[in-house]
Every structure is written in structure tokens, then in C-alpha cells.
């Protein structure tokens, strides 16, 4: 504790200055814009807020599309994340370090570039995209393309959360289960999954937040067709650029829904972190 260690204590004026600067920074940079958003969104009352969200068919569809795209991408990335973490944390093989870096790669690619990658691969003028179109399968300017780019940008989340947890938990219990005769899947469902459940949930939540909020990559592949390929963030932009006051009000309302989602994500995240700490202290 700081008070017990006088030589670690800073003079009071340093302390107060730094606390004031911290509160000022977080207040101006983060809190004020958030408060501004909610004040604007609810400026005309709750009924107007509701109408802004659900009276416009395009806005309704954007909510629906986001609620379809995010779970599909998150589910596929979760299966991948568990498999990748299992391979990387439990076994040693040549190229393991490279594989770990490759998994992180999508985080460093600009969202616009992600969109372009898939247009270059699957656009209507490319061999593969042309072939798919001949078979009546539209990827670019359609929901499948949106799912693909969303999967790309959220690719590392689950694997990245799970690898250190797998390593921390260790494989003793799994080895014991095997030597007692459990099949591979029995061991997986009864030992592995319970051991990693909080980390898994954490990864899924972060993955989902990013999936629902992705903008740049979706903007490139979706073609921004109102009522068909606009996700919530894209619809926010369209409404914001719209001229009427009603559009602006809808932009704030829709943005506030996305913000509530990210606030809920953070809330759950803090809860899981606390749970994590409790369980660890219990083990120790």
C-alpha cells in the first residue's frame, strides 16, 4: 500500500495533477462523446427513439442483417479458435511459432484492404467469382461476402484468448482422463471445455463485439445496397449523411444501440475478469 511506503509516495501536487489529468483525459476523450451520443439519441424521448429505430424498413433490415452475420461468423471462428489453441498449446511441432504469428495476422490488416482482398478473389470479374455467379451464387455485394470479411477481421480473437489459458491450465487432468479410459471427445467435453469456459466466453464476446461493429471491410464488399446489404454500422453512416432531421435522429438512435452492445461487452468482460481472479486465488 502506498501509505506504508513513504519512499514510493509522490508529493501531493504531483499526485493531484496526475489524477486531474487522467480524469480530464478519460472524461474528454471517452466519457463526453458517449454522453453526447445518448443525449442526442434520447433528445426527443423514448417513443421517438423507438420510432427512429423501427419505422424505417432499411434500418430494420440492417439490424436483422447484423444479427444474422455476427453469430455465423462468431460460431465458425469459435470452432477454429478452439482447434487452433488445442494444436498450438498442447503440442510441439515445426512451424508452431510461425503459425501463432499467422493467426494474429488479420488484426494488422486494414479493414478496407480486407474488403479488397475478397473482392479481388471473389468479385464478379474474377474467375472464381464468375464461376460462382454462373451457379447463381452471389458472394460479393451479398451477405456471404459480409460474413467472410467479418470472419477475417475477427479471426484471431478466440484462439488468442485460449492459447494462454490452455497453457496455464496444463494438461495433467486431460492426461489423467485419457489414462482412465476416457475417449477423446469425453475428455474434451468433460475436462477441457469446463477448464477453459471463462476464457472461451471472453473470446466469444470480444469476437462478437467486433463482428457487429465492423465497418470498413463490410463497406467494400457489401456495395451498400440499402435494405439488402447494409449492416448496422453502414446504415448509421447512411443516416448520418442523410439530410433530414429524422435521418440524423435515426443515426444517433442506431449508433446508441451499437454503443449499448459494446458497453454490455465491457460489462461482461469486467465480470469475467473478476471471476477469473477469484478462481485463481481459490486454486492458490
Amino acid at each position: 500500500m502506498p501509505s506504508d511506503r513513504p519512499s514510493r509516495n509522490d508529493p501531493w501536487y504531483v499526485r493531484y495533477t496526475l489524477i486531474a489529468l487522467t480524469l480530464g483525459t478519460v472524461g474528454l476523450l471517452i466519457l463526453l462523446p458517449l454522453v453526447n451520443l445518448f443525449v442526442q439519441a434520447f433528445a426527443e424521448g423514448a417513443t421517438a427513439y423507438w420510432n427512429s429505430l423501427f419505422h424505417n424498413a432499411d434500418t430494420r433490415h440492417s439490424i436483422f442483417l447484423t444479427l444474422m452475420v455476427a453469430p455465423v461468423s462468431v460460431a465458425l471462428n469459435t470452432v477454429f479458435g478452439v482447434a487452433a489453441a488445442w494444436a498450438i498449446a498442447r503440442f510441439r511441432f515445426p512451424g508452431r511459432a510461425i503459425l501463432t504469428t499467422l493467426i494474429d495476422l488479420p488484426f494488422s490488416v486494414s479493414p478496407v484492404v480486407v474488403g479488397l482482398l475478397f473482392v479481388v478473389l471473389l468479385g464478379s470479374k474474377t474467375p472464381l467469382g464468375g464461376w460462382l455467379l454462373e451457379h447463381d451464387y452471389r458472394v460479393i455485394f451479398a451477405p456471404p461476402g459480409i460474413v467472410l470479411v467479418t470472419m477475417f477481421v475477427t479471426f484471431p480473437f478466440v484462439a488468442r484468448e485460449l492459447i494462454p489459458i490452455f497453457e496455464a491450465v496444463g494438461s495433467e487432468e486431460e492426461i489423467a482422463a485419457r489414462s482412465l479410459g476416457a475417449t477423446g471427445w469425453q475428455m474434451f467435453w468433460r475436462i477441457t471445455v469446463p477448464n477453459i469456459k471463462w476464457g472461451l466466453l471472453y473470446g466469444i464476446i470480444l469476437c462478437n463485439a467486433r463482428a457487429m461493429g465492423e465497418f470498413g471491410a463490410v463497406a467494400v464488399v457489401s456495395g451498400k445496397i440499402g435494405g439488402r446489404t447494409d449492416t448496422m454500422p453502414l446504415q448509421v453512416q447512411k443516416l448520418w449523411e442523410g439530410q433530414s432531421n429524422a435521418d440524423t435522429a435515426s443515426a444517433f438512435a442506431l449508433a446508441s444501440v451499437l454503443t449499448l452492445l459494446s458497453l454490455a461487452t465491457l460489462f461482461i468482460k469486467v465480470g469475467i475478469e473478476r471471476k477469473f481472479r477469484d478462481e485463481r486465488t481459490k486454486i492458490e
Partner: peptide, 14 residues
């Protein structure tokens, strides 16, 4: 952590 969780489009707009 808000900037990590908030969609970038929302951040830009506000």
C-alpha cells in the same frame, strides 16, 4: 477499454 469495444463508425460519428 471503450475505444477497443466501440464500433469505429460510431466513434467517428460522435
Amino acid at each position: 477499454d471503450i475505444p477497443f469495444a466501440l464500433p469505429t463508425a460510431v466513434a467517428g460519428m460522435i
